[in-house]
Amino acid sequence: MTEFLSFLSAHIDMAYVLILSIFVGVEVIGKVPSVLHTPLMSGANAIHGVIIIGAIIVMLNAGVDNIPALILGFIAVILGTLNVVGGFVVTDRMLEMFKKKKN
């Protein structure tokens, strides 16, 4: 219990961010027309690619001699970049087609 409380107080601002973000996410998505569901899913998909920052941090913290961490971190950065770049580019390609047609 003590451990939990000290963990919570150490991360209390994170806890607030967590709770508020949940509501923001629900609120922002609540009113999306079904036309945009696919691009939205794809855009959200790109945003969770923010995990790449974790992979970069792993690499920055790993020493030059920590070979396993460097190898796994290297792969993780590649995968994270794929998620981010691929996600945003694919979403942009889809949305490009939604431009209003002028007769």
Binding site: G25, V26, I29, A44, V50, G54
Partner: peptide, 20 residues
């Protein structure tokens, strides 16, 4: 990592994805 941008980004997608 006590990293706010990862937390907000992740949770936004988590809750938005759930709603979707």
């Amino acid at each position: 990592y006590n990293n706010h941008v990862m937390l907000t980004g992740g949770i936004l997608v988590g809750s938005a994805g759930t709603i979707l």
